[in-house]
Write a protein that binds this DNA or RNA. Structure first.
Lengths: 220, 220
DNA sequence: CGAAGCTTTGAAATACGTCAACGCGTGTGG
DNA sequence: CCACACGCGTTGACGTATTTCAAAGCTTCG
């Protein structure tokens, strides 16, 4: 979804919302009314187990859509927290549904969004199920990098909006492991890292660790 | 989706297909034409990485739908293999789309299927990312059990159609670990296991290991 | 300025993987 | 019909990647 698409949709609905860093866009248990198109900022999406354990299921950036998984139960079963001050466009799903019935292209767009997200989750499953820690982190960095590139930013230099803890949780690892891996990748001259600002020095080397010789194949 | 729903849809399209054990329902690279509603048997869905590594993303049983993730690219990116002789109902997606525009309830049904699958994948992410091996297997067994129950079969006695290797891959473990865990659960009187036929002796105890005090919460 | 949370690094513990051997069932071809 | 191979399943011994625990430095923000 392009920024232009989002603007057009916002024209239809006319509502947007600001979410400050650390605030929830929606929480588990909230009723499902809207999809959210991210205009600026970033979010982490998190599911909570009955024992309180949490799992970051994905990170979301401008141009991406949040809330699709809440449709069937009319209830959010996960929460989305802003990683930085962010703004989203509200898309009331009932209106969207109505509009989609009249505009086949929109209909197909919605199916595609669902379908893409399913395919993306399959990739993450592969990462968590079968890959070593360094492969997971390398694949994560390449994925983030390519998503920055898609939006016209530098693919080789960016600031991570999420904490090591969030990255670790997302990748099924611990913050300590992430920290050690960053240090190692730094030592091996593959990246430069200063706190949350990252520079990718050797995308090819990183891709090799990620187990993909095509650096942009993990793009969403 | 109930069996009646599937029959109705089949009336619309009128086509079905038999897939023998070990045969592919579709392979990665196949063009996307149909969704598949399972009438009998079972399938494993598998993604393949560039290095040939594979990951089982889910198991599918009668009443469930396959192929949703192929929509956006008009191409299957994973394959589905029958675990036993099976039959599926073919649902040409273009026809389904057309029909859905006229029948809002069908439209919503399709959204729900997508949405449900997304939510289900989030649960698996939690399993792979944060849970120990025994928790994963216990949750798997409870999930399978509840899906049998949904279809009117015994929740406490069933025959697994997938190999230990498949289960291990699905849960991000090795076949040896699965085997050892089955032995352990057997020793602890939680299950009886003879090859692939399973009997759950203590669903509560199993649920405790799974980290959920509500045994049926993992149902799809 | 202080507290609280994040990050880094080291040392020790452990859960799970790897390797290896063996038994079992099943299908296949001589 | 038997022999054999092959894939699956089990179990043990051992190795190791990652976690856990701990301590200290560093940011950030009230």
């Amino acid at each position: 979804m392009s920024r232009a698409d989002i603007d057009r949709l916002e024209g239809v609905t006319g509502r947007k919302r600001i979410v400050r860093a650390g605030e929830m866009l929606y929480s588990a248990g909230d009723s499902f009314q809207n999809l959210f198109a991210i205009r600026s900022g970033s979010f982490k999406c998190v599911v909570t187990a009955v024992d309180g354990d949490i799992q970051v299921t994905h990170f979301a950036f401008p141009g991406e859509l949040l809330g699709l998984d809440a449709y069937s139960r009319r209830l959010h079963t996960s929460y989305s927290e802003a990683l930085e001050d962010s703004s989203v466009c509200l898309l009331p799903f009932v209106q969207l549904e109505r509009l989609a019935r009249q505009v086949p292209a929109l209909q197909q767009q919605i199916y595609s969004l669902f379908s893409d997200e399913l395919r993306q989750e399959n990739e993450i499953l592969m990462l968590l199920g079968r890959r070593s820690a360094d492969t997971r982190l390398a694949a994560f960095l390449i994925n983030i990098s390519s998503r920055y590139a898609q939006r016209g930013y530098s693919p080789s230099q960016f600031v991570l909006s999420m904490s090591r803890i969030d990255i670790a949780n997302y990748l099924g690892l611990t913050a300590e492991t992430i920290s050690r891996l960053f240090s190692r990748l730094h030592r091996e001259q593959l990246i430069r890292v200063d706190g949350r600002s990252m520079q990718i020095l050797d995308i090819v080397g990183l891709s090799e660790i990620a187990g993909t010789h095509c650096s942009y194949e993990n793009s969403p």
